[in-house]
């Protein structure tokens, strides 16, 4: 693919997009810090001050800025992957709910894209998953877009750091991602939803409230009970799937080759030049040299 080789030619607004991504990150971090450090004092009178406004505007704006800035950097091959990954997120997430599983499993596609195509692609997949979820299943998914962005970014950096080279490292990356996801989404659950994000999670929040914890502390503890477990399982599932795939599928992605995500030293022909051309050559003359029936 010619576009993967020349990313600078594809992106005429490189600086602008970097500023978007950086601004998005700053807005998200500032929103979280503000909400944690200046917890509303009006809660005793039944109000929240500006906390819910800051939570919804800050998080949605930050997630949008990152998605808008990151999507320009993606080559066409990655853009074509994103819709399918979002569909995997939504379809598997729905099946997990209908089977009555205790985990969400709604970020398999996001993590897969993050690992194969990098943090920017993971962020775009995460953000747009929640946009699509909001357009097709429930608009209440939109405020949580920021969590999905963070999950995609962390999956990308975990892959870059080599967490997918050993089978026991990926669950560790899942644990860290789950903890960060729980911390980031706690203010949304507390200040936008009042802790009422679902039946089971709501019961946990009520239990923590009954002991006398603040609302934010209760949703944080509830998140820390459910998110890390879900992400450990999801990262493990993604790892199993990726290692079950033929290695030529995985090494097709420039990000995988550049950071040696799966740790296997690739043949010189694949690391140096176009893997596509070697494939077409291998596929082309196959019927003449070897009989196609092998089984």
């Amino acid at each position: 693919m010619s576009t993967t080789a020349t990313p600078s030619a594809v992106d005429p607004h490189r600086t602008r997009n970097r500023i978007f991504v950086a601004a998005g990150g700053i807005v998200i971090a500032a929103t979280y810090l503000y909400l944690v450090l200046f917890q509303p004092t009006e809660i005793a009178e039944g109000g929240l001050g500006q906390s819910s406004l800051i939570a919804i505007v800050g998080y949605v704006l930050g997630a949008l800025l990152i998605a808008v800035g990151a999507i320009h950097r993606l080559p066409t091959a990655t853009i074509a992957l994103v819709p399918v990954a979002i569909a995997v997120n939504i379809v598997v997430g729905q099946i997990a709910t209908s089977l009555g599983l205790p985990v969400y499993l709604d970020s398999i596609g996001t993590i897969l894209v993050g690992v194969l195509a990098g943090p920017a692609a993971g962020a775009v997949t995460g953000a747009l998953t929640n946009v699509i979820w909001g357009m097709t299943l429930s608009p209440l998914a939109l405020p949580f877009a920021v969590t999905a962005v963070v999950i995609g970014v962390l999956a990308g950096y975990a892959a870059r750091l080599g967490m997918f080279r050993r089978f026991y490292l990926a669950p560790v990356a899942g644990l860290v991602t789950g903890i960060v996801a729980a911390l980031i989404s706690a203010p949304i659950a507390a200040f936008i939803f009042g802790g009422a994000t679902g039946g089971g999670t709501g019961a946990l929040v009520a239990a923590f409230r009954a002991i006398g914890n603040s609302l934010l502390a209760s949703t944080t503890m509830q998140g820390l009970l459910s998110d890390p477990l879900d992400k450990v399982i999801t990262f493990t599932i993604v790892l199993i799937i990726l290692f079950a795939l033929p290695s030529r599928f995985r090494s097709r992605f420039p990000f995988v080759r550049q950071y040696n995500v799966f740790g296997k030293a690739l043949p010189a022909s694949e690391t140096l030049g176009a893997p596509k051309s070697t494939e077409t050559i291998a596929d082309g003359p196959a019927p003449t040299t070897t009989p196609p029936k092998e089984d």
Binding site: I71, H72, I79, V82, A87, L128, I132
Partner: peptide
């Protein structure tokens, strides 16, 4: 790219 991803996912 954004509108492609959203329309195609739907």
């Amino acid at each position: 790219k954004m509108s492609y991803v959203i329309s195609s996912t739907l």
